[in-house]
Computed example of a mutant assay.
Amino acid sequence: MHSDHFSVHAEQFSDVDEQASTLAGWEQEYQQLGSGRFVGALAIVETDEFCFIRESTNTALHERIVPPPEQMVIGICNTQAQGHLLNGRPLTQDQLIVLDGSRPHHIRTTGPIELLGISVPRELFLSQLHEQDEASVRKWLDLSVLQLDAATAGMLRHYFSVAFDLLNTPAGAAARPISPRALASTAISNVALALSLNQGSHELESTLPSRQRRERIVQNAIDYMRAHAGEEIGILDVCRATHVSRRTLQYCFEERLDISPLQYLKALRLNAAHREIKRRGSEDRAHDRHDTIGNLAALCGFNHPSRFASEYKKMFGVLPSETALKTAAQS
């Protein structure tokens, strides 16, 4: 017998790393790609089996996410803006997001976005579907998105919004007319209905190997960049490490993340510097803060400290020294 006990957590964020680390059991890393100060919000309603999630961010990001093992995440985008990507595929309001915890997923946002969804045990979700729909979902897990018609997508967005509103009402049976478990079960039923009404445009399975190869190229390149971000590496070094031509690397990054490899390397270094400044600032190292900022540019692959400071402020809206002072004041 299942309990209707649940917890609610809602928080506003000004730090992208804090937001990325909030979901328990998830492996997430967010790289800020857009300019300006980060503003985000995350609301979580969690029961024994289900987790409703509502997340918003205000700037361009690359999000690498791995849901908990044996879980599926079913969701939808609640933002009209175009240009967002999920695993290299366009992510719009009229697509159902279907992710599982067996592999990393990459979300590339181009600006403000709100995502609504629910995390459920994989086998529990699949057991609620008709045989034909289950086969469709298992296939589309490789692609991560299912095309819906506008009316069906609108129904799901409305349902998830209403579910959050009901769960955020004051505690008490009179105030909350439906239990969290019932809302979660209804969410699965609504998704199953959407799948029955919309089988989507079936992409040929023969395209999957090439898409998966391009995904591996990008992931291998990012792994190499991350491991050698503090060294004087260039794009040709990344090409040699991933055994592809410069043209292929450029195409794969632009298709999967809508950004060039060189731009991504610079953003990766700036985000690494941002995290290192916060780490050092939290260690009460006020006595050598000047030395910390002075050397950090070189440690993160920037040869000119003044250019580093300029690029850092353009990315995060503050100077490196301001981040250090703020972190030290909070520690």
Rank of each mutant, 00 (worst) to 15 (best):
R307P: 03
V16G: 01
L61F: 01
S56H: 10
Q71G: 04
L124G: 10
S196G: 06
I97W: 02
V39Y: 03
K314H: 15
A227D: 11
I107T: 01
K313T: 05
G25A: 08
I222T: 07
M155I: 13
R275C: 04
T327E: 05
H243P: 00
I188A: 14
I259E: 02
L115Y: 05
F302R: 07
G111N: 00
F308E: 02
T109F: 03
A187S: 11
K326H: 05
Y159Q: 09
Q199A: 12
L265A: 09
Y30L: 14
L126R: 02
L146R: 12
L262C: 07
T169W: 15
F253S: 02
D237Y: 05
A328V: 01
A163T: 13
T47A: 05
F125I: 04
L86S: 09
L257T: 00
D284M: 15
H9F: 14
W26G: 02
L265S: 04
L319Y: 13
G83Y: 06
E29Y: 09
E27I: 12
W26E: 00
E18N: 14
P68N: 02
Y251S: 09
S102V: 00
I113G: 01
S136M: 12
G281D: 06
S260W: 00
R37V: 05
V145Q: 07
R280S: 08
F50A: 15
S185K: 13
Y159C: 08
G154F: 09
Q330I: 02
S189A: 15
P177L: 11
D237M: 05
L208W: 06
P180A: 10
D284C: 14
Q19G: 01
L265E: 07
Q80C: 06
G75Y: 06
E311A: 15
Q93W: 04
H158F: 15
K139R: 15
R307K: 13
H105K: 04
I222N: 13
H130Q: 14
T248C: 01
H2I: 11
H5S: 13
D15Q: 08
Q28A: 11
I107N: 04
K266Y: 08
H158S: 14
E276K: 11
A20E: 02
L141D: 06
I259V: 12
L270N: 10
L141Y: 08
I259S: 03
A286S: 12
R122F: 07
Q250Y: 13
D94C: 01
V145K: 05
F302H: 07
R157H: 09
D223W: 08
R285S: 02
Q82P: 08
K266W: 08
M155Q: 15
A194K: 02
E11D: 10
E322N: 03
V191F: 05
M315P: 04
E46P: 03
T152G: 10
E276P: 02
C252H: 02
E231Q: 13
H243V: 00
R89W: 02
Q128Y: 12
A187K: 10
L208D: 11
D223V: 08
G40T: 01
V244R: 06
E231R: 13
R211W: 01
I113V: 09
Q250K: 10
R226Q: 13
R122C: 09
R138V: 12
L23E: 00
K278Y: 08
M315D: 09
H290C: 07
A153V: 10
A153N: 10
L166R: 13
H228K: 12
R122W: 01
L115K: 04
G75K: 06
R247Q: 07
T327D: 09
I217K: 05
Q19A: 10
L126H: 00
W140R: 14
F316S: 11
G317V: 03
D165I: 15
L115W: 06
